[in-house]
Simulated assay, not measured.
Amino acid sequence: MRYDSVLQAIGNTPLIRLDRICGTRISAPVYGKMESMNPGQSAKDRAALYMIEQAERKGRIQAGATLIEATSGNTGFSIAMIAAIKGYKCILTLTDKAGPEKQALLKALGAKIVLCPKDAAPEDPESYYSRAEELAGTIPNSFYLRQNWNLDNSGAHYHSTGPEIWKDTEGKVTHYVCCAGTGGTLSGTARYLKEMNPDIQVIGVDAYGSVLKKYWQTGVFDADEIFSWKVEGLGKTIIPDNVAFDLIDEFIKVGDRAAALRVRELAQREGLLLGYSSGAALEAVFSIRKQLTPEDVVVVLFPDHGSKYLGKVFNDGWMQEQGYLKPNGEPATYSVKHLQRMYRVYKRMYGRKIKQRLNLV
Rank of each mutant, 00 (worst) to 15 (best):
I61E: 03
K33C: 12
A43R: 04
A47V: 04
T66P: 05
K44D: 09
G40C: 11
L49Y: 15
E35Y: 05
M37W: 14
M34P: 12
P29H: 04
K44H: 04
G23F: 02
S27Q: 14
E53R: 14
I52K: 11
A65D: 04
A47H: 04
A43P: 00
M34Y: 02
K58M: 14
R57G: 13
A55E: 11
G59H: 08
N38I: 07
N38V: 09
K58R: 15
D45M: 02
S27L: 11
E56L: 13
D45P: 07
A48I: 02
T71M: 09
I68P: 07
A28G: 03
G64L: 07
D45A: 06
G59W: 10
I21W: 01
T71F: 06
R60P: 00
A48F: 12
A65G: 10
R57V: 12
G32C: 13
A28N: 02
E35T: 07
Y31L: 10
G64C: 06
C22T: 09
S36L: 13
Y31A: 07
M37F: 15
A48N: 11
P29K: 04
P39K: 01
P39A: 08
N38Q: 10
R60W: 12
Q54N: 13
A48G: 09
S36D: 02
D45I: 08
A65M: 02
Q54S: 15
D45Y: 07
T66W: 05
Q41G: 11
G32F: 11
P39D: 08
M34G: 06
M51P: 13
K58N: 15
I68D: 09
I52L: 06
V30L: 06
D45C: 05
N38P: 01
L49D: 10
A70M: 02
S72D: 08
